[in-house]
Amino acid sequence: MRLLTTREAVPLLLVAAIAAVLPLLGSDYYLGVGFILFGWIALAQSWTVVSGLAGYISLGHVVFAGIGGYVLVLTWGAVPVWAGALLGALAAGLFALLVGLPVLRVRGPYFVILTFGLAEFAKYVVINIENALGRFGRLILGGPPLETLYWAMAALALAGTLAVVAIRRLRLGAGLVAIREDELAADTIGVPTVRFKLFAFALSALLPGFVGALFVLRTGYFEPAQAFDPVISFTIVTMAIVGGSADARGPVFGALFLVALSELLWSNFPQVYMIVLGALLVGFVLFAPNGVAGLFERRRAAAAAPAGG
């Protein structure tokens, strides 16, 4: 087996190259864009683990980022910044483990709407806790500088991409794909479906927890409705579907494309940006369910196959 196949090398190199080049442009604007881009890549790669490989589509992935951010502000001042972010990631993973067992029993489309409901539920619980505490938004002063956050987020994006590449090679990845294709058949050939699903779910929550903490550090404040905004879940799904969720390339392609689009539209026409996103999701689900990466694949297969093959 080659060290890395093309489809594994492309996303890894792309992330590394972007991370190396952006600081050379010497402006905080590019660092800021890069920070967001890497955040989305890490989120979309994590989503891919449970939703792309195992086929359990989550419409509520924001919940893990929200938890990460919330734990960071709760521990702010009590523990060092990075320990707080790490605790945020662990809390998100732990939450996934706890809710995973009952939630992952729910199949197919019902799982999908359940994840959305779960994220909204968590949002309103946190809103009520904050209200009860009399806190309406929490400010965080003296977080790490942008450049540090940039490199931290780049590392998360790379880690997420590497994780997807690695998992696809492992027995875990083969089992998750089998679960996606036919869960009963997977169980019958010996895939420990319950354990694998739970593990994948927890794994796909860790990085988002970390990303959520970094988002809070960057904006300097925490507000539950924003930290748990369902639009974040929606954007993750759209990125992964537009890019293609079958392997590690898709999330990178999708995030690049959507972040570019967002830079173009978001500041002046935020609603137009969301409308385009919605239309993209509908269009890709209907006409190109394997995303941009899938379109490449088809083109290559057509070029490689002899006529009629």
Binding site: I57, L59, P109, V112, V231, T238, G278, V282, L286
Partner: peptide, 15 residues
């Protein structure tokens, strides 16, 4: 169709 309809309607909802 069930699973796809969910994503399609999600997009429609945002639009």
């Amino acid at each position: 169709i069930e699973a796809n309809s969910l994503l399609i309607f999600f997009g429609i909802s945002i639009v």
